[in-house]
Design a protein around this nucleic acid. Structure first.
Lengths: 217, 217
DNA sequence: ATATTATTTTAGGCTTGTCTAAAATAATAT
DNA sequence: ATATTATTTTAGACAAGCCTAAAATAATAT
């Protein structure tokens, strides 16, 4: 049997490894889980023994196929419950997260199948995030160039296209890392440059740069 | 904050004290919670310190008003979820208990209010048990004399009317204690006596006896 | 290349909720 | 009234999941 804490770790690891593309580091995980690095190390060892993750000391963790299945099952449940709360119980989409965090841990295959059916087999949750299917298959997030967004748009950085190390260094400096929220403040039509805000700081990005940042649609 | 284990203990204490009318004993609780007496003693001490129960060493426990409120809130949630599972998700009434045992611990006042509304403010759950209201008020179970039941009827002993010690001794001997399930096998119209089954054993009860056993309607 | 800084791990400890075995108390039978 | 039996409590231990402080390792800057 898998514990609630283990499920939450696997879910977090999944999300963090979607955001970046490297191994998930202890401190990242500690921040995401609102806990201390030492506690994360303890849990990592356990998850590794149970073969939910592969772990190289000092170099972070990666989900195994087995671990990914668990993570996706939890995410599936989370997103189905969020859909239920919004569609059936008339919650607004910003109220649902906390409750779904609890509901996602209910263990009953039958319940989730029935819920899915009751909701009409939805493909995305109220935030627009895709709902993994029974087998843990998930439609890749729609990736779009930041350059295509209109002013006012708020989205999350999914990846960076070009791997020019100059560019990466620059993006890193301004905090434009995968997982970060980026908002388009203004966009100059004549050259395609834009002013954006990241971490509440403003930056001007050339068209070249904004075409290399991929955000979720 | 109250833990999941604490909630379950309080719920069990509530149910056991409904069945009998005396203090709930350590062993009773241990059996109900599927745990050992020593563990129960530990938990009892904690619940007593937190003033959810009053506890006299060696003589069992009773819920305080505070503890009763918690127990009834859990029971309210349990029964609302059971209603949801049966009415909306098309579970059959015998499949719902296990899932409701998990769902009853979700912490969200708003969720339960919304769910209640969504279900049309039901007064009883799919088993016919009354659903406590927001304030923990619960309609007393309909009590009916065993003598009035028809053959085939299956119900739970709620109380024993007469306190004739001869009768009590007899009832105790055949296992006819509050909380026990009793089934009417056959009923003789001419004298009102009946054959019943308790704990898979059969007994003949005179009309006098069956009029003194109260079961839930 | 080495010293400093940042990250991660280890060591040892705490709480919750459980357990077994032994001791204490209550109930029952003679 | 006392001995036997049943119940309950205490004592001591363990796993899960967290913590702090110290040690080990890796990354970075000079």
């Amino acid at each position: 049997m898998i514990s609630l804490a283990e499920e939450n770790y696997l879910k977090s690891i999944y999300h963090l490894s979607q955001a970046g593309s490297k191994s998930v580091l202890t401190n990242e995980l500690a921040e995401a889980m609102n806990t201390k690095a030492a506690s994360v190390t303890d849990m990592i060892k356990k998850l590794s023994t149970k073969e939910f993750i592969s772990y190289e000391k000092y170099y972070g963790v990666n989900l195994t196929a087995k671990g990914k299945t668990v993570a996706l099952s939890v995410i599936r449940k989370h997103r189905l419950w969020e859909t239920f709360l919004v569609e059936k119980l008339a919650f607004s989409w910003d109220e649902v997260h906390e409750v779904a965090e609890q509901l996602e841990h209910i263990q009953s295959k039958r319940l989730i199948e029935k819920l899915d059916e009751y909701l009409g087999f939805p493909k995305v949750d109220p935030h627009g995030d895709p709902i993994p299917d029974t087998k843990g298959k998930i439609k890749a997030l729609q990736q779009v160039m930041l350059a295509t967004l209109k002013p006012g748009a708020d989205s999350i950085i999914v990846a960076v296209k070009d791997s020019d190390s100059q560019l990466l260094k620059y993006l890193d400096k301004i905090g434009a890392r995968p997982g970060k929220t980026i908002k388009v403040i203004e966009r100059e039509e004549y050259d395609g440059s834009m002013e954006v805000s990241i971490n509440n700081q403003r930056f001007f990005l050339s068209k070249e740069v904004s075409e290399n940042i991929l955000v979720n649609a």
